[in-house]
């Protein structure tokens, strides 16, 4: 008899609603008593619901996802504040359900309903959720889940802009140096995504925030005592400055003697990978056709040292572009004349 009533298939809307009900319950109660059987049962049901949501969105080994079902699910999900509930309740879920929930949230960011990205619209109105996700880096149990959700959310340009311009941006300089390698690496991946994904937004952000951003970048990252921080930072700096959309920022960066000093120190590192990445930034200082006098002075003063350094400077792999760049840099440096000898 029971089967007769239970077998009616649930629609995506039903599943979202049931998930919501249990999330509200989970949010209000706490698991002070681990032998709370009723709660246990509800949480198991929640796990199952979240898994069901996942298989609607991703399909499974037997069937592909159905566009209509996905749209229905997405619409219902964002009609109310389910994303908020899910994010807040995530620490109360077990590991497997956390992973499922993360994948559900990730997928929802890409779902379109009537060619609108309603996830983006929702997040624009609920930016505090991004603050919660970023704060996750301070909690080692949640960091990888919140971090993965965050990276999916900043696929939306408006969301990335919010994060870039928020106070939280400053925290990344510490997060990427956390002792836990997996968490630090996740934060570094998010940081990189923020600074490379949406070109126009990044260019605007860097122009507006040039002073503090590069002051922090230089002192905390490029001059960090931590090898891996320096290595990732110099690589990312190269990616940022060499991007055409950031040419204004690049010109400004390569006109500063402080920056040149830092880069020259990195060129002297014993680590081959740091050296190589540093070269890709250093060459911009040299290639700059309007070098300020103090830059020229430094380059001239260190000319023989630099030329000696480049003489046995090789990459591990054969790299024609690198060799060509190096030859150009050597030529430029050799031809430099101290202009301001008055």
């Amino acid at each position: 008899m029971k089967g007769l009533f239970k077998n009616k298939p649930r629609t995506p809307t039903d599943i979202v609603r049931q998930t919501r009900d249990i999330l509200i319950y989970a949010d209000r109660t706490s698991s002070s008593d681990p032998r709370d059987a009723k709660r246990e049962e509800k949480m198991a049901e929640l796990s199952k619901n979240i898994r069901d949501l996942k298989s609607i969105l991703y399909g499974n080994s037997e069937s592909e996802p159905i566009a209509e079902a996905c749209a229905q699910l997405t619409q219902e999900f964002f009609r109310e504040n389910n994303l908020r509930l899910l994010i807040i309740c995530l620490p109360k879920l077990n590991l497997e359900t956390r992973k499922d929930a993360t994948q559900v949230v990730a997928n929802l960011q890409r779902q379109q309903v009537q060619s609108r990205l309603i996830a983006s619209e929702y997040l624009e109105k609920n930016t505090d959720l991004l603050d919660i996700l970023i704060g996750g880096y301070e909690n080692s149990d949640m960091a990888l889940h919140y971090g993965a959700m965050l990276r999916e959310c900043i696929r939306h340009q408006s969301v990335a802009r919010y994060v870039l311009e928020s106070e939280n941006m400053k925290k990344f300089f510490d997060y990427i140096q956390l002792p836990n390698f997996d968490i630090a690496a996740d934060a570094a991946a998010t940081f990189k995504e923020l600074l490379t994904r949406h070109k126009s937004t990044v260019a605007e952000f860097l122009s507006k925030n040039y002073e503090w951003f590069f002051a922090e970048y230089n002192s905390k990252l490029l001059e960090s005592v931590n090898y891996i921080t320096r290595r990732q930072a110099i690589k990312l700096l190269g990616d940022i400055l060499l991007d055409r959309s950031n040419s204004v920022v690049m010109t400004r960066y390569v006109s500063s003697r402080d920056n040149l000093r830092i880069l020259m120190n990195l060129l002297r590192e014993s680590s081959k990978s740091i050296q190589t990445e540093a070269f890709h930034v250093f060459k911009l200082f040299v290639a700059n056709q309007n070098k300020p006098p103090d830059i020229i002075t430094i380059l001239v003063a260190n000319r023989s040292k630099l030329l000696r350094l480049f003489a046995d400077f090789k990459t591990d792999k054969e790299d024609e572009q690198f060799e060509a760049d190096k030859a150009q840099v050597v030529k430029e440096i050799a031809a430099l004349e101290p202009r301001d000898r008055t």
């Binding site: 990888l144 997996d182 690496a185 996740d186 991946a189 090898y227 290595r231 081959k272």
Partner: peptide, 19 residues
């Protein structure tokens, strides 16, 4: 890490998977 430079992201992937 200095010797396995190219696949740093691979290292990160495996660490994350293992965690």
């Amino acid at each position: 890490l200095d010797q396995s430079r190219a696949d740093f992201d691979n290292v990160r992937w495996e660490i994350k998977t293992m965690s």
